[in-house]
């Protein structure tokens, strides 16, 4: 029988739809009976959405300018060749 910890171990696979049908069914049965796991799956889903929505991937402008500079030098060197 699927226990709470078993469910926690494969929770991301469930959220991403990566599980086999039989495992999916076992999780759904468990979720019907267990409010703690319902909270856990719901919270993990929100955590996953947070990552997708969070814009912390904004580039560091100082690094971008250093890269611009190196590209400009390389392009200039190529034009001379």
């Amino acid at each position: 029988m699927l226990m709470c910890k078993d469910l926690a171990e494969i929770a991301s696979d469930y959220i991403d739809g990566e599980l086999a049908t039989s495992q999916n069914l076992a999780i759904r049965m468990h979720l019907m009976m267990c409010r703690h796991c319902r909270s856990f799956i719901g919270n993990l889903r929100v955590s996953t959405d947070l990552m997708q929505a969070h814009s912390s991937v904004a580039p560091d402008e100082a690094l971008m300018r250093r890269i611009d500079q190196r590209i400009a030098e390389a392009l200039a060197a190529r034009k001379k060749d």
Binding site: C4, S39, F40, V46, L50
Partner: peptide, 14 residues
């Protein structure tokens, strides 16, 4: 089984 279950539900969207 859960010994310390999730302490709350995240009710709001991301």
């Amino acid at each position: 089984r859960w010994q310390q279950p999730p302490r709350l539900r995240f009710d709001e969207s991301a």
